[in-house]
Design a protein around this nucleic acid. Sequence first.
DNA 1: CTGTTAGCGCCTTCAG
DNA 2: CTGAAGGCGCTAACAG
Lengths: 337, 337
Amino acid sequence: MSTTIKDIAKIARVSHTTVSRALNDSPLINRETKERIKAIAQQLNYTPNFNAKSLVLDRSYNVGLFFSTLRSGTSSTFFYEAVKGVNRVVHDRYNLVVRGIDDARDFQQISRKSFDGILIMSQSAEDQAFIRHLQDKEIPFVVLNRLIEQPGVLNILADDESGAYAVVEHLIACGHRKIAFIEGKKGFQSSLRRRSGYERALQAHGLTVCSDFCEQGDYDIESGYHAMKRLLRLEVRPTAVFCSNDDMAVGAIKACSEQSVRVPEELSVAGFDDNHFSAYLTPALTTVKRPIETISSEGARRLLEAIESKRMEPETIYVSTELVIRDSVQHLPQNVI
Amino acid sequence: MSTTIKDIAKIARVSHTTVSRALNDSPLINRETKERIKAIAQQLNYTPNFNAKSLVLDRSYNVGLFFSTLRSGTSSTFFYEAVKGVNRVVHDRYNLVVRGIDDARDFQQISRKSFDGILIMSQSAEDQAFIRHLQDKEIPFVVLNRLIEQPGVLNILADDESGAYAVVEHLIACGHRKIAFIEGKKGFQSSLRRRSGYERALQAHGLTVCSDFCEQGDYDIESGYHAMKRLLRLEVRPTAVFCSNDDMAVGAIKACSEQSVRVPEELSVAGFDDNHFSAYLTPALTTVKRPIETISSEGARRLLEAIESKRMEPETIYVSTELVIRDSVQHLPQNVI
DNA sequence: CTGTTAGCGCCTTCAG
DNA sequence: CTGAAGGCGCTAACAG
C-alpha cells in the first residue's frame, strides 16, 4: 500500500489535517512543523492520491482536447501542432486527454467531474451536439478553429476566408484568370470559408466562378490527386489551382507530374496551411500560413485561466493568416494572357 | 449539484447499496428492481462520479501515451499514427492522456493511482529513468518502438535494422556501390539500428563503409536538406543515398533539386517509414514501411489486457517492416558502373 | 497554530 | 435478494 497522509501523521506525531496543511502550503501552519512534515513525506516517498483530492475538491485535473474526428480529414501536421500547442501550456498541471468526438459512444460519460475543461478543435457543425452537451453540463470549454454562431462562447480561429482571398488574389495578380479550386472536406466549416474566400476574390476582380473549375476534395492527399486528375481532363484547363490545404496540393502536384504537366510552368498550384514540409517540396509550395499551434496554445491558456478564475470571457478571436509566396505559382507569360 | 446514487435511492425507495448494485449489473439483485432503478437513473440523467469510483476501486481510468519528446525528432506522421493506433483500442474505456517524458517536471506525480497503465513510445535511452520509475511504482507499462535490454518488459517494435538492410540491399541490387547514409537523431536507438542495417548490408556485399558518406541528421526535414547539401559538395559523389526517415528524404530531394541534380536519374534516394505522403512525392519515394499504427494498437491491446487480468506477459515482439519500391531509386546504367 | 469531526460518492463486507 | 455500517484518502469547517 502506498503511503498516505495518515502514515506521515503518525510518524510526525501530528494529526493528518496538519499534514494536509503542510503539504499544501497552507498559511495556517508553523514553518518548522511544515518543514519537518515535508521532510518526512519526502523520505517516505509520498505521492498524493489525486483521486481522493479530486473527490473532495471536485476537480479532475483532466483537460480534454477533442477533435471532430481522429480518423480522416485531420491531417497529421494539423493534429501534431494542435497537441503540441496545448501541451506546452497544460504541461504538468493537468492531464491532457486527447479524443475524437465521433468515437465518444456516449457523451454522458463526459461530465464536469471528469474534465475541468475542454478544448474543442472543431471542424464541422456535427460537433454542435457535443458543444451543447458541454453547455448543459456547464463544463468550461473553448472552441478552436471553427466559428460558432451562438454567443457566449470563447472561440479562437484562423481567418480562413481572408487567407483564401489573399492567395487567390495573388494568383490573379500573377495574371491567372482560369483559376480552379479544390474544396476541403464536405461539411467542414473551413472548407466553406475557404471556398467563399476563393469566390469573393474572383468576383472582386470581375471573374466568374465556374462550376467546372470547382472540385470536391476531403483534405486528404488522395482526394487532391483525384480532383486534379479530373481538372486535367477538362477541355479548357485552368492555368492555376487553389487547393484547400497543402496535403491536397501534394496530391494535385503528383497528378500533374504523372501527366507531365509541369508545375508551375504550365500550371500554378497554391495550398493552404503551410505544413512543415511545404517549403521543401519541389516546387516549394505557395500557401497560406495558418498558425494552429498558436491558436491551440492560446486556447489552452485561456481555458486554464477560466478554470482557475471560474469565469469565462466569451469572445471571438481571429488569428490572422499569412500569405507565403514560394515557387509553385508563376506569372503567366504575357502572350498567354 | 449532480445526482448521486443516494438521490436515486431515495426515489426508488431502496438503499444506495442496491442502486450501486443495479447500476453495476451485480448478480445479487432482482431483475425487476434493477430495471426500475436503471430507468430512474436514466431519467435523472445520472452520471457516475468517476473520482469516487476511482478512489474506492483504486483505478484511475487513465492510460498514458508518453513520447520521449513532443518537441523535435518526433515527426508529425509518427505522432499521429501512434495516437490513432492507441485511441482505436482505448476508446471510451479509458482516458488517453498524451505527454512528453521530457516535460514531466517530476515523475513522482505519476503513480499507480494516476495511471492504470502507460505506453511508452520510446526513442532514446534517456527514457530509461522514466521506465525505472514505472517499475518502482509497479505501474503496468509497455515499451514501444525501442528495444529494451532488461528482461521482464513487454516490448513491441519494428525491426529497424533488417528494414534498413533491405533497402540498402535493394540499392546495391540496382547497381549502386557509392551509397551514402543520412543518420537519424543522435541518441535515438532507431538511428543506431538503421545505421547498423546500412553498414551490415554494405559489408555483406563487399563494400566498405566510408565515413565521408555518413552524415548526421536529426529526423527533421531541415537536417536531411543540409546533410544532402554536404554530400553534394563531395569530390566523389554518391550515386545513392539512404535517408533514415522519409522526412529527411524530402529535405534531401529538395537539396538535389536546388542544385539541379535529378532524382533518380543522377542520384537515387531512399527513405524509411513510408509516411502517408511518400507515395505522392515526385519522384514517389522508395522506402521501408514501418507500421507504427499497428505497433501502437497492439501495444494498447496488450496493455489493457494486462490491466484487466492484472498480469503482464513480458515478451519482445518484432513487427516486420516492408520494402516499398517506388520511383526514387533507379538502376545505374551499365556504363556508369 | 493544531486537532476533532464530518463528509465528498462510491463499493464492499457482513447481517439479515 | 436487500440493507446497515464502514472506509477509500483527502480537505474543510469548527473548536480550542
